[in-house]
């Protein structure tokens, strides 16, 4: 154990301004290159994989609000992914709606259903919450399998008209890719701003010390409910896009395993860290897609072992969240500058 502590984040010398700038440019260029990879790699395999990465990254970003920001363990997150997907499939199949008209509806239904589930659920204490959400995920999976009239049962739903935008039909994965990317960017930006908002600061309080937060006048259940709803909405949107891209939706995508992987993405990537969970989502697809091609079912073992190792050795995740201080805002309110550089702040005690 002693030797392994070397793996933990240690304090490094502060790099010079030039190095920092060079690193930042490299990071931006690298991200752009990676995000545009489907265009220059071509074919339909790579766009498909990149869409998967994007969708899992959105799932990570959404669940990060619940787990990372508010500290609530949600083991049934993929239920909302299923809800978004089935709402889209029903609207498209039976009412001829286009994907773009359905997305807001899917988001609203995910919001409403998370409020209905969250309200009784979030009153129970933390570790019971995990079980409640697990049960909810199980019920939605069960409903997807058995409520044949709504979900098509185990065969799922398919055969709706191809979605189109301004007369341009969406057929190949490359057609969908920009929208997945846009959803990811939107999710990242919105949750980034949520974190420093009044709601986000209340979440941080609740996560750090629930009793102290209640004593400070934070309405615990209400803010937990906000976290649950504002996290679930992204799963609803991603689920609708997923169903549209696959042109099929069936219960197999929403098993308990999927919810487990979603939690793993957040913990691996770094709870609370938006860039971390995006990397976690990409990482997950790489393992699930490319590794399982060679090792078959072994990918489950590898992923579970990785998760265990991260929890034990690097609990802050691959890319830990480092709070930064908004110096402009501090100055505006006439507050003193923070005594330590943001780089010195470590979650790991």
């Amino acid at each position: 154990m002693r030797a392994l502590t070397l793996l933990r984040a240690t304090r490094r010398p502060v790099p010079s301004a030039n190095t920092k700038r060079a690193l930042r440019v490299a990071l931006v260029l690298g991200t752009l290159g990676f995000a545009s990879a489907p265009y220059w790699l071509g074919g339909s395999y790579f766009p498909d994989i990149w869409i998967d990465m994007g969708l899992w990254a959105v799932i990570g970003v959404g669940l990060n609000v619940v787990i990372g920001f508010a500290g609530l363990l949600d083991l049934g997150y993929m239920a909302f992914y299923a809800i978004g997907g089935y709402v889209f499939a029903n609207a498209a199949l039976y009412h001829g709606f286009n994907l773009w008209e359905t997305l807001p509806v899917g988001a609203v239904i995910a919001l409403v259903s998370s409020a209905i589930i969250g309200f009784p659920t979030l009153r129970v204490r933390g570790d019971y919450l995990a079980i409640m959400t697990l049960g909810f995920g199980g019920i939605v999976y069960f409903a997807a399998q058995n409520l044949t009239a709504l979900t098509g049962g185990v065969n799922g739903l398919y055969g709706w008209k191809t979605p189109s935008l301004l007369g341009h039909p969406f057929i190949t994965p490359l057609d969908f890719y920009p929208f997945v990317l846009a959803l990811l960017v939107l999710a990242a930006l919105v949750t980034m701003h949520l974190r420093t908002s009044r709601i986000g600061r209340a979440w941080t309080c609740i996560k750090d010390d629930e009793i102290a937060a209640a004593a400070s006048g934070i309405a615990i259940v209400r803010y937990k409910l906000y976290a649950y709803m504002l996290g679930s909405v992204w799963a609803g949107l991603a689920g609708a896009l997923f169903a549209a891209k696959e042109a099929l939706i069936s219960p197999e995508s929403f098993t308990f395993d999927a919810s487990f992987f979603a939690v793993a993405i957040v913990v691996l990537g770094g709870m609370g860290s938006i860039s971390g969970v995006i990397v976690g989502g990409i990482f997950y697809v790489v393992i699930a897609e490319w590794l399982s091609a060679y090792t078959g079912t072994l990918s489950g073992v590898i992923f579970a072992a990785l998760l265990l190792l991260v929890v034990l050795l690097r609990p802050q995740g691959l890319i830990p969240y480092r709070p930064t201080f908004d110096r402009r805002r501090l100055r505006r309110y006439g507050l003193p500058e923070p005594p330590v550089a943001a780089d010195d702040y470590r979650l790991d005690p």
Partner: peptide
């Protein structure tokens, strides 16, 4: 090792253990 860690950590590690054992049996 997580006896004194924040409450979410042992929960996640027990979940990972659960999955690890099940996946090994499946393999």
């Amino acid at each position: 090792p997580l006896r004194n860690a924040p409450p979410l950590a042992p929960l996640v590690s027990s979940l990972a253990t659960f999955f690890l054992i099940i996946s090994i049996i499946q393999v």
